[in-house]
Design a protein around this nucleic acid. Structure first.
Lengths: 194, 194
DNA sequence: CGATTTTTTGAATCATATCAACGTACGTGG
DNA sequence: CCACGTACGTTGATATGATTCAAAAAATCG
C-alpha cells in the first residue's frame, strides 16, 4: 500500500531509508467506494490525498446546478483543495471517487510536523504545487484559444489513462462542453478518420 | 524603491530588521518602458519580478497569431514563467510592459541563495504560489461555467484596479473573447442600467 | 434480468465570432 | 502646436460552433 508513495517520493527527493520510514508514518490509509466523498462543498479541507489506486474528481457546482470538474486524480496523483486547507475556509469544491479507491492521507497538522521533521519535503511540495500551477496555466491557455475539438484532442494526448477510464460525461464537464457536444465531436473525428 | 517590497514581505513573514536588509540585497531594480519585454517567447525565464510600479502582461500567441493574456501584474504583484524558470526550458510566454514600470528582479540563483540564507522565504514563496494556483483554479471554473458577460463582471469585481487602466483589447484577450464582443457586452450593460 | 446511467441523434436556438467599415483618441515628429 | 499615423473602440450584417430540449439506443450495474 505504501510502495507507490515511496516510489513517488524517491523520484523527487533524496531520503535515507530511515527518513523514508519516518515520513511514511505521517500518512494514513483510507478506502473510498465509488461515489463516496473525500470532501464535500462547505466543509473545510483537512488533508491532502495521495492516490494509491482508483480515480477521483474535484468539481464545483454552479448556480444552475451544473457540475464543473477542475481536476481528475488517478494513481500517483495528489488531490485536495489547497485554498481551503491553507485558509481553513469552507471549500467551494467537492471531491468524490469515480472508482473504488485507495488513498494515503496527510492531515494538515501532520504535514506541518513532517515539514519540520524532514525539511526536504518543503522542496517536494513546492515542486508539486509548481506542477499543478503550470498545468492550470496551460489549461487556461487552451480553453481561451482552442475549439472544443482541439481541447478534446489535447486532453486525449495529455491524459490518455484518464480518457480511457472515465465516462464521457465527466470528460465533457472537464472540457467545459455538454456531453452531447462531445458525442458529436467524437462522431466527427471518426468520420474524418474513416 | 524597495519600500513596497519591504511592506509586501512584512505582511507575510516575520523578519528582523537585519534580515530585511540582507534579503533585499538579493533583488535588483529594473526599469521597463511601455512595450519593452521582460521575457520573450523562446527565451528561458531567468528571474521572477516584483512590480513596484506600472503594469505588465504575460501572454501566449496561438497558431493563428492571436495573443492570449494569462496574467496581468500591477504594483505589489509578482510575475514570471515559473515553469521555464524551474525547468530551464524555453518559455511559451512573453511578458511585456503595458506602462512604464519599475521592477525588482530576483534571479534564479539569487533565489536559491536567499532561500538558503533565510529559510523563512520558503514559506513566503509557497504562499505566493498557492495564491496563484488558487486564482488560476477560480479562473478555470469561471471560464468553464460562466458567460462572457458574467466573466467580465467578475473581472471588474476582482480586479477593478486593472480594469480601469488597461485597454479593452487586453481585457478581452484575458477573458477569451473578441474586443468586438466586449464592446457589445459593455453597451448591453449600460443600456440595462439606464 | 430490469433499472439506471450513459451515449447518440435531430431540430431549433443562442452566444459569440468574423468580416468590414467607420469613428475616436493619442502621441510623436515636423 | 498641429497633423498625421497608429492604436483603440464601436457598430452592423452574417456565419458558425455549441447549447438546449427531447427522445431513442446502447451500455453498465446490482
Amino acid at each position: 500500500m505504501f510502495e507507490p508513495l515511496r516510489d513517488h517520493i524517491r523520484k523527487r527527493i533524496d531520503l535515507t531509508e530511515e527518513e523514508f520510514v519516518r515520513s511514511l508514518e505521517y500518512f494514513h490509509p483510507r478506502r473510498l467506494k465509488r461515489h463516496q466523498f473525500l470532501l464535500q462543498e462547505g466543509d473545510v479541507c483537512k488533508h491532502v490525498a495521495f492516490v494509491v489506486s482508483g480515480c477521483l474528481r474535484c468539481y464545483s457546482v454552479d448556480s444552475e446546478g451544473e457540475e464543473h470538474i477542475v481536476q481528475f486524480a488517478i494513481e500517483d496523483w495528489w488531490i485536495s483543495d489547497p485554498y481551503s486547507m491553507l485558509t481553513g475556509e469552507p471549500s467551494q469544491y467537492s471531491i468524490d471517487a469515480l472508482e473504488d479507491s485507495e488513498l494515503l492521507l496527510l492531515e494538515k497538522d501532520s504535514e506541518q510536523r513532517l515539514l519540520r521533521d524532514i525539511p526536504k519535503f518543503e522542496r517536494m511540495f513546492r515542486l508539486l504545487l509548481e506542477n499543478r500551477f503550470v498545468a492550470n496555466q496551460r489549461r487556461i491557455t487552451s480553453v481561451l484559444s482552442a475549439s472544443a475539438e482541439e481541447r478534446y484532442l489535447n486532453f486525449l494526448k495529455m491524459y490518455p489513462a484518464i480518457a480511457s477510464r472515465v465516462p464521457q460525461v465527466h470528460i465533457a464537464s472537464y472540457l467545459g462542453i455538454t456531453p452531447q457536444s462531445l458525442s458529436r465531436i467524437r462522431r466527427g473525428m471518426s468520420e474524418k478518420k474513416a
